[in-house]
Simulated scan of single mutants.
Amino acid sequence: MKKILYFLGMIAILTSCEDVVDIDTPTEPPRLSVDAVIRLDTTLASTTARIRVNLSSSFFDNNEPLSVKSVFIQNLDYAPEDPSKSNVLFFFEVAPGVYEGTKETSFFTTGKLSLHIEYNKEKYYAETEFVPTSPINKLEQGNETLFSGDETEVVISFTDDGTRDDFYIFDFDFNEYLVSEDEFYQGQEFEFSYFYGDSIKPGQEINISIMGADESFYNYMNQVIVQSSSGDQGPFQTPAATVRGNIFNITGIENLDDLQSIEQTDNFALGYFAVVQEFKQTIIIE
C-alpha cells in the first residue's frame, strides 16, 4: 500500500516592533566539533572518506576549522585480501579542518568501526557499524504548493525493506534534512512531498539523497534538526543547545568496553560518527 505524507516547512511570521529587546543567547565553553558521517556508494570498489573537525563557538557564530594531531579509523574485524594492507585508515588534512582518507569500500561495510582523534593532548573515541538503506524509486517535481503559492514541490518515493526495522535520513540539499522511520510503512512503498521556499528558481539543480541510520543516529539527527531549524545554520553547526552525539573524550581511560560510564561525564565532543549507505539522485527544477 502506498502512503503519501506531506511535510510542511516551518513558517516564520515577522512582525515589526519599535522597541529594542536584548536576548541572552546560550553560552558554553568551546568544544571539539566533529562531522564524521561517512556516506557510502557501495557499488564503488574504494571510498574516499571525509571528516571535518571544528572548534565550537558562541551561539550565532561560525565554527572555526581546527587542525588536530591525528585522525584514524580502525576496524578490528576487517581482514584485507592483500596482507600488506592494514585494518587502519589514517586521515590527512587536505584543507583547514578537513581530513580525508581512502580505503576499499569493504573496509567500511564489515564489522565494528572505531574513530580515534587526538587534539590538544586529549583523545576522543567513537564507534559504529555500517547501516544500509533503500534506493530511491522516483524523484520528480510536483505541482502542489502550500500557503504562499511560491513553494516548489518535489515528490520522492522508495520501498522499505520489510526484513528489518529501518530509520532514514533525507538530505534535500541546502542544509535541509528530514528523518523518518518505517514503523507505519514497513515493507511498503512510501511516497511523500517535500516543499522548498521561494528561493528555488527554474533551472536550478538539486541533489537529493536517502541515507540509512540506526536508531541512535536517527534520534540524534532528529534533535539537531529541530534545534537548528534545518536552515542555513545546518545540523553540523553550533545548535541552540548542546546535542550530545557518540564521540567521547577517553583521555586517561583504559577500558573502552564500558562506554556507558563514559557517557556520564561532561567532557565530550559535539558531532557524530556514522557510516551509512547513500542513494542520490538529481532533479532540475522546471
Rank of each mutant, 00 (worst) to 15 (best):
M1A: 11
L5N: 12
Y6W: 09
G9V: 07
G9H: 12
G9S: 12
M10S: 12
I13G: 05
T15P: 01
S16Y: 11
C17P: 06
E18F: 11
D24S: 14
T25Y: 14
P26N: 10
P26E: 11
P26V: 13
P29V: 13
S33G: 13
I38F: 00
R39T: 00
R39F: 00
L40V: 01
D41M: 04
T42R: 10
A45H: 09
A49E: 02
R50L: 02
V53N: 06
N54L: 06
S58R: 13
F60T: 15
D61W: 09
N62E: 13
N63S: 13
P65W: 14
K69I: 13
V71D: 00
Q74E: 15
A79C: 10
P80W: 07
E81D: 14
S84W: 10
S86R: 07
F91L: 00
V94W: 01
A95Y: 05
V98I: 11
E100K: 04
G101C: 00
K103L: 00
E104M: 06
E104T: 08
T105N: 09
E118N: 06
E118P: 01
Y119C: 09
K121E: 10
T128I: 03
F130Q: 03
F130A: 02
N137W: 07
G142R: 13
N143W: 13
N143C: 10
E144Q: 15
T145Q: 08
T145V: 15
T145Y: 15
T145P: 12
E151C: 05
F158L: 11
D160C: 10
T163L: 14
R164Q: 15
D165T: 14
Y168W: 12
Y168I: 09
N175M: 06
E176H: 14
Y177R: 04
V179G: 08
S180L: 15
Y185R: 08
Q186D: 08
F192R: 01
S193V: 04
G197D: 14
S199Q: 13
I200W: 03
E205I: 11
N207R: 12
N207E: 11
A213H: 05
S216Q: 14
Y218F: 05
N219C: 08
Y220I: 07
I225A: 03
G234S: 02
G234F: 02
P239G: 02
A240H: 08
V243W: 04
N249D: 07
T251S: 10
T251E: 06
E254P: 06
L256H: 04
D257I: 01
I262H: 04
I262L: 05
I262S: 01
E263D: 07
Q264A: 10
N267F: 07
F268L: 02
V275T: 01
V275C: 01
Q281A: 13
T282R: 04
I284A: 04
I285D: 01
I285G: 00
